[in-house]
Design a protein around this nucleic acid. Structure first.
Lengths: 211, 211, 211, 211
DNA sequence: GATGAATGAGAATTCATTCAT
DNA sequence: GATGAATGAATTCTCATTCAT
């Protein structure tokens, strides 16, 4: 029916970092506004009315582009999932020693997370609002990401550059715990910039993995 | 009128690990039920009606013991904050080398978190629901906890047993990120018990801090 | 939970022609108001707001007693179905020749229908709004009624007092067509009273069945 | 501007059984689709969007041909009214004894109704949606039909071939009740075809009218 | 202490219709 | 002739909270 209303209609063609609803300025504005408000107040505490008021359109317009409030949430999820998977693949596929590849990937996810802090706040806080169906889909994508990261650690453990005192799974959760947590404490006007935080956190991971 | 309804009235007197509403079985059942439902469905998605139905009482009873739905949330917060502060103080005050004291504290918070996973899930997910006033209070308690933990790290850094390549603050957030994250992945029927997870996570922290 | 909200809670105890929500005056007033409005304007054209305004209560009160707007419709159905089945059973069980029993039943359903014209208007006009589940239930009750009536005709056909030139099923639908139709043309201030209309319609049926 | 949009503009010229929108295939498809959906789901439960989706056109197209959703309903009414009046006139004007003319007319309206069951379902179910103005118009046409039918009965009563024990008006309503009712029970795959049902129902009417 | 009927504000969503292109 | 984005009013339903009993 409408542009972005159908699940995956023309998804592939629009491409780029903007994802769906590329050209439609109203849809884009709505998504941006919703993202900000969801991050500030939480999904449940943000009413559709607030979103459309802030975006300067009417409810009808929102429902013209998005099938439901939930759909808005999914667009946010989709964007952040696609972005992070892309970046992980890029670093994991690089031609470098495994310790370098892991370090780069670990640091990059921190930078990317900070640069999209609103999206990731929403992602981690509101994941449990997903209906069974879409939940499965998101979990599957999430698992794929997780496994790719774990593979790097296992590779290093096998080749002896990382300790195998700790299960690789747990290490992944350890690191992503700190990434997830960024939304709780990171402030743009704090003493450390994204890159510095990323270096430190990657450093901690690499130190912890020293044999 | 009632015991727990007034903000902090007789707080000090009740003492012990059970916190407020110690003796009242109805209040206790309500709090336990609310905790479970909040953890399962989120605070906003849980209606007062659901809570009282599940607890087998009526709304009047709930409002007799708790001033509002928010109050229920605060009791959960209060319990978990008090509990964790107590345990941290216990380990930090011990008579042992700093690396032992930090390790014990770091491992203990993991065990305690897993043993109260519902409470901590709620804590991290719903903190942003707090009104300005109570938010300040919780943040203050939270900061106190955070600072006590940081002090241990700084002590180790000063005495040279821990590296000072990374700011102590960041290390605290690093560790608490992984603690916070437990609610996302830890399963009671998973391969690792609370103690084992705690050992591994404490291990990772100590390794990361090796000079 | 609430009085009439649960399907059949205390149904049996209330008894009598009033059906559920016997004592609750608010529930009764709501049901009466809704019945009138549904008959006047149709189910879909009547908003919940109109009902509660006309009944002088608030929406919350309506939803306290009835789970949904649909529930209101079902109470109407239930009442009319129960009433008509009772009366049919009464006349069909009587100790009299079959032509007398059929005539009495045929006339009585006309009187009852006219006396509850609002309910029956709603019944016939809005039956198609029923969800699959309740639709089945209503159809089952309807069929039972239909079959009882048909049995009388078949009895007369077997014993030769009625012609068997026409299938009994069709005769039932023929008669109930005219009953159903009453809502379309019968006016309280018209030339014929309920009893007179009933006599004429029963007469037509008996004449049509003469061998 | 468009053909059928203006109330009655060129009505007379189009003539034939197809009524308005004869040639325009889009308008015809829209009307057919709307008829089906209205019959299946009811007028109020069918959205304009559903109609245009099912017809494979856009909303603009619908509003190009029909002034409003109500207009669509009126086209259905118009078609069925015109059709039935034509057929009744045909049989009533025939050169045959009155009992033959009535029987033929009574049977024919059954056949025509079954053959246009969707239209008649809509007609009887949604008549009450008409605005005051159009309601009057439809009622007038309806009355004209009714009176023509009644005249046949009165003619038979005067000449003694029909009983006058029952008012002619009531007999008309009796018969049309069963016609109206067809939409409730008639199934295409049932045991009786349109012609057979028509014969039986006409038979019942004639039997009832025997002196 | 406890009940549960009632409130009233606000939630998401739908939809017939319009209008610039 | 035809599109589809946008409107805005209305709809059903939810829910924390209160209060007479």
């Amino acid at each position: 029916m409408a542009g972005t209303k159908d699940g995956d209609g023309s998804g592939g063609a629009t491409g780029g970092a903007t994802g769906r609803c590329g050209a439609k300025p109203v849809a884009r504005r709505l998504l941006a506004t919703a993202t900000r408000l969801f991050a500030e107040q939480g999904y449940d505490r943000t009413s559709v009315q607030e979103i459309v008021d802030a975006a300067g359109v009417t409810k009808g317009a929102l429902y013209h582009y998005f099938g439901s409030k939930d759909d808005l949430l999914h667009e946010v999820y989709g964007r952040v999932l696609r972005l992070q998977q892309e970046r992980l693949d890029h670093f994991a596929d690089a031609d470098a020693p495994v310790e370098q590849r892991l370090r780069d990937a670990a640091a990059d996810v921190v930078v990317t997370t900070i640069e999209n802090l609103d999206d990731t706040k929403i992602f981690f806080r509101s994941m449990h609002h997903l209906g069974a169906e879409k939940d499965k889909q998101v979990r599957a994508e999430r698992r794929r990401y997780h496994e790719r990261f774990r593979a790097l650690i296992e590779e290093g453990q096998r080749t002896g550059v990382f300790t195998d005192a700790v299960p690789a799974d747990l290490v992944v959760d350890y690191h992503f715990g700190s990434v997830h947590h960024l939304g709780t404490w990171y402030r743009e006007d704090g003493p450390l910039g994204p890159r510095q935080v990323a270096d430190h956190l990657a450093d901690l991971l690499m130190r912890a993995l020293r044999p």
